[in-house]
Amino acid sequence: MKSVCLKREADGTYKPAYTELPPLQPHRGHVIVEVKACGLSPVDVKVLSSLHDGAETLPVGYEVAGVVKDVGQEVTSLQVGDSVIGLLSLASSCSGCAEECEMSELAVVPKPESVGFIVAAGSLQPALWAYTAVHYLGNVTAGNTVLICDGATANGTVAIQLAQLWGAKVIATASNHEEAEYLEKMKPPPACIINLSKTRSFVENCLAETGGLGADCIIDQGVDLFQSGERYSEIVLTALSHEVGTVTGERRRITKHDAISALAVGGKWITSMSQLQLDPPDSQFLSMKSASVSFVFEHAWMLSARQHGKYMHILEDLADKLNKDILKPMIHHTVSLLDACSELSTLSSHLTGKVVMKI
């Protein structure tokens, strides 16, 4: 059985590699899924290594769509031949980027017949991220104004659609003309698109669009910690170096001060910046606005058994919305299993849409 993993090199770094494994046998309550497609995302090696106690090889690929090949004891809701979708836990020893993987019966839902394997796999991680940020952390409802940064990415596209579906007014940022053009073609498009490559003052544009009140919820996929021209601190550079598939080249995005300044009173700032540094003046500014900061880490649902019900709610609602063509994820392109290793090192350069491995 062919699989892709991250293999530790002599210098301690991890790099994508192919491996041959014996056929998998299902444990109690688990099924073997013949992988038809797997969404690819940048990998945080530091987190993975800590979960796997610094193992020589680490699994890669978690967003799986496939067909049940074998079932273990006490599996009652699935049978061989069922088409399913689901996400592997970061703590799983299996790679989803493989010919087959083992998944818990309780971690998958049926794939709608009208939805292809590629679209299903490509929507899993963006949807889990978007539901976590927009619904569970942002509590976005009708009448709210939501600012979604990097709206043309796979995560941003789904977050925009969910916020619009729940009645919110959406402001989205774009890093360049191509991203802005993509956002303009969405149906419906965001109420306001702020092209960061053209505007001189993001905060002024955001406040003008909200009548001076600011956004009720700001959702980012990373922010700059300092103003343009200032250098990253050593801790941020170190954090970025732990991510496989993350290009650290220049990219226009808002700063942490921009986010705080654009927040409304009582607003919620939902950030993906795990190494966020808030100075005392930042905290005081947030406090004076009675605002809050939350961190979105979509894999937390699979790492905590107590939150399993929320994870299953997201999967079931996603499957329903895909079946009804309510959610339309953006697929950038597909690659074969043989090309997956080289693809993992360039994932973040594809700014619009999701890359999917197909078999």
Score class of each variant (00 low, 15 high):
Ile160Ser: 03
Leu162Thr: 07
Ala163Gln: 01
Leu165Glu: 11
Leu165His: 11
Leu165Lys: 08
Trp166Gly: 01
Trp166Ser: 04
Gly167His: 07
Ala168Lys: 03
Lys169Val: 10
Lys169Ala: 10
Lys169Arg: 15
Val170Phe: 05
Ala172Glu: 05
Ala172Leu: 03
Ala174Glu: 05
Ala174Asn: 05
Ser175Ile: 03
His177Thr: 14
Glu178Val: 14
Glu179Leu: 03
Glu179Val: 06
Ala180Gly: 11
Glu181Val: 14
Glu181Ser: 15
Tyr182Cys: 01
Glu184Lys: 14
Lys185Ser: 13
Lys185Arg: 15
Met186Pro: 04
Met186Cys: 13
Met186Tyr: 05
Met186Arg: 13
Met186His: 10
Met186Lys: 11
Pro189His: 09
Pro189Ile: 06
Pro189Cys: 08
Pro190Cys: 05
Ala191Thr: 12
Cys192Asn: 06
Cys192Val: 14
Cys192Tyr: 07
Ile193Val: 11
Ile193Pro: 08
Ile194Lys: 04
Ile194Ser: 04
Asn195Thr: 03
Leu196His: 12
Leu196Met: 13
Leu196Ser: 12
Ser197Met: 06
Thr199Gln: 08
Arg200Met: 10
Arg200Pro: 08
Ser201Gln: 04
Val203Met: 09
Glu204Gln: 15
Asn205Met: 08
Asn205Asp: 12
Leu207His: 00
Leu207Asn: 00
Leu207Cys: 00
Ala208Val: 03
Glu209Ser: 01
Glu209Thr: 00
Glu209Cys: 00
Thr210Asn: 05
Thr210Tyr: 00
Gly211Glu: 00
Gly211Ala: 00
Gly211Gln: 00
Gly212Tyr: 00
Gly214Gln: 01
Gly214Asp: 01
Gly214Asn: 03
Ala215Cys: 15
Ala215Val: 09
Cys217Asp: 07
Cys217Thr: 15
Ile218Arg: 00
Ile219Ser: 03
Asp220Lys: 07
Asp220Pro: 09
Gln221Pro: 01
Gln221Thr: 11
Gly222Thr: 06
Val223Ala: 05
Val223Ile: 05
Asp224Ile: 01
Leu225Phe: 07
Gly229Tyr: 07
Gly229Ile: 09
Glu230Gln: 14
Arg231Ala: 15
Tyr232Glu: 14
Ser233Met: 12
Glu234Lys: 13
Glu234Gly: 10
Ile235Ala: 15
Ile235Ser: 15
Ile235Phe: 14
Leu237Ile: 06
Leu237Pro: 00
Leu237Glu: 11
Leu237Thr: 09
Thr238Gly: 05
Ala239Asn: 07
Ala239Val: 00
Leu240Ile: 03
Ser241Ala: 14
Ser241Trp: 03
Ser241Glu: 08
His242Glu: 12
His242Leu: 06
His242Cys: 12
His242Phe: 12
Glu243Phe: 12
Val244Thr: 10
Thr246Val: 11
Thr246Asn: 10
Thr248Ile: 12
Gly249Tyr: 01
Gly249Leu: 06
Gly249Arg: 02
Arg251Ala: 10
Arg253Pro: 02
Ile254Tyr: 04
His257Leu: 12
His257Glu: 15
Ile260Cys: 03
Ser261Gly: 06
Ser261Ile: 04
Ala262Leu: 09
Leu263Ala: 08
Ala264Cys: 02
